Simulated assay, not measured.
Amino acid sequence: MPKITIYIALLRGINVGGHKLIRMQELKSLLTNMGLDKVKTYIQSGNVIFESERNAQQLEEQMEQEIRRAFGFSVIIILRTASELEQIISGSGAKN
């Protein structure tokens, strides 16, 4: 049985100064339609938490492609697992 991972996606440069606007409900729908589970967005920030069995590199690439297709512009996505983010916050490790 594949392992389900909790991911946090940080979308860089959206909803800032009126450029690259993405409504969070539209982003949530897009990611849910990609087959991601338990998708939740945080205010109008471009931060998303979700669950998936797929690996981070595949997800980053697919999410960037789908956002470009749906919204007409490119967005850089930084994807971390919940455990990676916990390590970064606690100062016990960082991912470059």
Rank of each mutant, 00 (worst) to 15 (best):
E51V: 02
L21W: 08
E64V: 08
T41M: 03
L31K: 02
G93H: 09
Q57R: 10
L85N: 09
F73V: 07
Y7V: 01
S52N: 00
G46L: 03
S45N: 06
I8G: 00
V48G: 00
A9S: 03
S52F: 01
T81W: 02
K3M: 13
G93Y: 09
Q62L: 10
L10I: 13
Q62N: 11
S83Y: 11
R68G: 07
Q58E: 14
T41G: 02
G17T: 06
V39H: 01
L36P: 01
M63W: 07
R12F: 09
R54S: 12
A82Y: 14
G13S: 12
N96D: 12
N55W: 11
L59P: 02
A94W: 10
K38S: 11
H19G: 13
R80G: 04
Q44A: 15
M34D: 08
Q65K: 12
S83P: 02
S45W: 10
Q65V: 07
I67N: 03
L31P: 00
I77Q: 03
E61T: 14
S45E: 03
I67E: 01
I14P: 03
G35Y: 06
G72A: 04
L31A: 01
N55D: 15
T41E: 04
Q57D: 08
I89N: 02
I43T: 09
L85W: 15
A70Y: 02
S92F: 13
E64H: 09
I67K: 01
L11N: 00
L59Q: 03
H19Y: 15
P2F: 07
Y42Q: 11
I14N: 04
S29T: 15
I6S: 05
S29D: 15
L21S: 12
I88E: 08
Q65L: 09
E84F: 07
R69W: 03
L10P: 03
I14G: 03
G35A: 07
G46T: 05
E86M: 02
K95E: 11
T41Y: 07
Q58Y: 15
Y7N: 00
S90V: 00
D37S: 07
K3N: 13
I14H: 07
F73P: 05
E51Y: 08
N33S: 15
A9M: 01
S74P: 09
E66I: 05
Y42W: 13
R69F: 06
I8F: 13
A9I: 02
G91N: 01
